[in-house]
Amino acid sequence: MLNTPQSLTDILDDAAILSLEHQIHLSEVLGEHDWRVDLQNPVFEFTGERTLTCERFHLLGSAAPGPGSWMWAWANPSGFPAELTALSAKVRDLGHQYGIAELSSPEVPIDALPHASGDPVMAAAVLTEAAKVLTGTWTSYTGEAGGGTRVAFLIEHPAFLLPPPSPARTMRLLQQSLAELPLSDHRRALYSYATMRGFNPVFDARGRRLTLGAQGFGATVDFDDLHRVASINGTVPAGG
């Protein structure tokens, strides 16, 4: 992270680009797929082009249109196994530490969440993004649980680990992120991603240019006064 988060928006910026990279990779691994979960005898499995049973999975919570709220798994009265809700409790504890109510309150109104626009699907996505960067577990899955309720998981399997970054793929990812993600602070988001991905980011003395590079890839990113990306220039070797 660029620095200690002051808000949920900061955490979402920290998470955004690395999360997108993991979700792109997940889609490439699975192809066309379906899924099933058993929360009482914990099993999470993907079926379809490739059958894959997650080695571990974590229930984060659910967003429901009826009450118009998200409920964290640690607060759910259904009494799920503790090993399934432990990561949601870790998010709660960090929410208390950072003073971010959306992460520490048992139930959060969907309308109070950035980018959610009253949509349970988006609400689940927003809080799942935050949980990723706080727990270091980066692959997620959200699915329909009936009646418009969206349930969110963090999932683990060796196949979901990212391959080493390639220059061309990294440039495509950065361009896609800037075009599609609702980033509030480009400067924070780029720095956080580069740090977590091992690109050794360094700002110039004014904080207006970010230089990053590793494994044959180098880039400079220039920012305007509002921390928005003004230009990005990368060095991509042939075959990268």
Score class of each variant (00 low, 15 high):
residue 78 S to R: 08
residue 78 S to E: 04
residue 78 S to K: 07
residue 97 Q to H: 12
residue 103 L to V: 04
residue 106 P to E: 10
residue 105 S to D: 12
residue 83 E to G: 01
residue 91 V to K: 08
residue 102 E to H: 05
residue 79 G to P: 11
residue 75 A to M: 01
residue 97 Q to R: 15
residue 91 V to C: 14
residue 85 T to S: 04
residue 75 A to F: 06
residue 79 G to H: 06
residue 89 A to H: 15
residue 110 I to E: 05
residue 103 L to W: 11
residue 99 G to N: 04
residue 98 Y to G: 11
residue 85 T to G: 00
residue 98 Y to I: 07
residue 110 I to H: 09
residue 97 Q to F: 12
residue 99 G to M: 07
residue 82 A to K: 07
residue 90 K to P: 02
residue 106 P to T: 02
residue 93 D to M: 08
residue 105 S to N: 15
residue 96 H to L: 15
residue 79 G to A: 03
residue 83 E to F: 00
residue 94 L to F: 15
residue 84 L to T: 06
residue 109 P to I: 13
residue 105 S to H: 15
residue 107 E to H: 01
residue 83 E to D: 06
residue 94 L to R: 11
residue 92 R to P: 06
residue 92 R to E: 13
residue 85 T to N: 08
residue 103 L to C: 10
residue 74 W to P: 15
residue 105 S to W: 08
residue 85 T to R: 06
residue 83 E to P: 00
residue 87 L to R: 11
residue 104 S to N: 00
residue 102 E to Q: 15
residue 107 E to A: 11
residue 100 I to D: 03
residue 100 I to K: 05
residue 75 A to K: 03
residue 90 K to T: 13
residue 100 I to T: 11
residue 82 A to Q: 04
residue 81 P to F: 00
residue 93 D to Y: 10
residue 85 T to D: 14
residue 74 W to H: 13
residue 107 E to V: 11
residue 89 A to Q: 15
residue 75 A to P: 11
residue 97 Q to D: 14
residue 103 L to R: 01
